[in-house]
Design a protein around this nucleic acid. Sequence first.
DNA 1: CATCATTTTTGACTATAGTCAATTTTGATG
DNA 2: CATCAAAATTGACTATAGTCAAAAATGATG
Lengths: 215, 215
Amino acid sequence: MAVTEESMKSPRVQRKREQARHRILEATEALVRARGVEDVTIQDITEAADVGHGTFYTHFKTKMEVLVPIVETHAQDLTKRIDRLTANISDSAVVVSVSVRHLLRSIAADPLWTWFLCNVQLPMETFRRGVGDSGRRDMARGMAEGRFTEISQDTLEPFLIGALVGVVRERSNEISEHNAAEDSACMVLQLLGVPESEVREIAYGPLPPLPADVG
Amino acid sequence: MAVTEESMKSPRVQRKREQARHRILEATEALVRARGVEDVTIQDITEAADVGHGTFYTHFKTKMEVLVPIVETHAQDLTKRIDRLTANISDSAVVVSVSVRHLLRSIAADPLWTWFLCNVQLPMETFRRGVGDSGRRDMARGMAEGRFTEISQDTLEPFLIGALVGVVRERSNEISEHNAAEDSACMVLQLLGVPESEVREIAYGPLPPLPADVG
DNA sequence: CATCATTTTTGACTATAGTCAATTTTGATG
DNA sequence: CATCAAAATTGACTATAGTCAAAAATGATG
């Protein structure tokens, strides 16, 4: 048989390959954080990771693609921390408000993440894998409780993700300094059907700090 | 003086240069519509426009940049047609609903426009110049009339544009066939504070066809 | 018309992303 | 250990975006 499943490969080969992949990811993140994505070449990466130029392309199809797992890891970490913070909040509207605000602030605080959202063609996929499940769960809960209007997830999801990406793209500077995160939370709550009289208070209410990162 | 204002140049030079620019734009649009943006090189464009390779870059900084005026022209035409269609509608909510639906449907119907929104880093600017003024005017009117909630344009604008771009990015196929445009209109109206009881009826109400293009 | 300063055009050149055929590594088998 | 097929690695190669110094065009002036 010509079939070669991943599981059939010897563990030693698998491990070596995995290590090279890891070195490439580490090297990329370090370089990109130090000098910015535009100023890092594949040469730079392969030299720092100590692999041949071509090897890069056996692990990642394009230069952009190597950034995906890097950003996704951070997205997943952040999601876990937000989940821990909101686990005990009873009002879905407050959960959504706190989540949106922390999400926007954390993205804006990370130049790599901001760059990625502004420049990559498909930030949706990354969002979906990183924060999507939590987001969908919170939305579903709020709708089930009658706190939010029933809206089809199918169009709500790209609409909401697009909106948040739009705010990051255009307002990333103002998120940290001004209230763009709170204003965005207002709009999300209103969009979800939370009564206008409550929206502002919830969106501008206290924002408990994120717990430490999950080791 | 070393100052050389545009107005100081001889009209003949100005005209020739303008003609070359026009040939480049025409050539680009034709090629790109026929073969897709990715499969058109600057070589292709300069050959079709009958200018030297370097001349392209005296008119446009990058390959992307030449697409901006092309898409913007279409955006402005579409805006005028939508404006003509909605000029006599009294309810701001209906104006916004009709505008959003036609906008999304028209974008989805144009592969070049869709590609542009999915791939270019700053579609905001194009949106703003093409449809922004009309959009802001409609929003402001609705708020002034008390039909919409008062929301600061500053964050509303990137939020809304991002949301629509998000829907185009993720749902461009479904806009024409399914009801993604109507669902999006629902969300926009709800976001603007239109009572939930009216939203669905307005967003799914009759959609008068666009008037012919403005010659 | 000849001269000249300025503007515009130009294509050879550079840098780099991504490809691919040749080479090396691997570990299974006799 | 020697052989071999499969997988992984590699860097020379291609294609193309964007740069820039040299050349050409322009039109004002004497």
